[in-house]
Amino acid sequence: MHRNGQVAVKRGDRLLKMRGKLDRGPIEFKSHIVQQEGEVMAIATRDVISVPPTQKIISAVATMTECGFRRLPVTDAGTKKLRGIVTSGDIINFLGGGDKYRLVSVRHNGNFTAAVNESVRTIMTAKPQTLSCDAHIVDALQIIVGKKIGGLPIVDHDGTLAGILTERDVLRVLAADHSPLFVEDVMSSSLKVTAPDSPISAVTKDMTRFKFRRLPVISNDVLFGIITATDIMRHLGNREIFARLITGDVAEVMNLPVRTLMAGNLFTTTKKKPINEAAREMLQRNIGALPVIDNMRLVGLVTEFDLVRAFSEE
Rank of each mutant, 00 (worst) to 15 (best):
T260E: 13
E240N: 01
E252W: 04
M262C: 12
N255I: 04
V222D: 11
S219G: 11
G264K: 13
A251I: 13
S219H: 15
T228V: 06
A229I: 03
M233Y: 02
I226Y: 12
P216I: 05
R213L: 05
N220H: 11
F210R: 07
A263K: 14
G248A: 14
A243T: 14
N255Y: 09
G237K: 00
R259T: 11
M233Q: 06
F212I: 05
T260Q: 12
F224G: 04
I218G: 06
R259W: 08
R244L: 15
N255G: 05
R213E: 08
R209A: 12
R214H: 13
P257S: 14
L245A: 12
T270D: 04
I246V: 07
T208Q: 02
E252M: 05
N220E: 14
T208A: 08
E252N: 02
P216Q: 02
M262K: 06
T268Y: 15
S219P: 01
N255F: 06
S219K: 15
K211D: 11
V250N: 07
R213Q: 03
T268P: 03
L223W: 10
T247M: 06
S219W: 10
L266N: 03
E252D: 00
V217K: 00
S219M: 15
L261E: 03
M254D: 07
H235W: 14
R259Y: 11
R239P: 01
H235G: 08
N255L: 14
R213I: 05
F267R: 13
F212H: 02
L245S: 14
T268D: 12
V250H: 11
M262E: 09
G264Q: 13
I227N: 08
T270A: 05
N238Y: 15
T260F: 10
H235N: 10
D249V: 03
I218Y: 04
E240W: 05
I226M: 07
G248V: 09
F224P: 00
A229D: 04
G248F: 12
I218F: 02
P257H: 04
G264N: 11
V222Y: 08
T260K: 15
R244C: 09
E252V: 06
F210N: 01
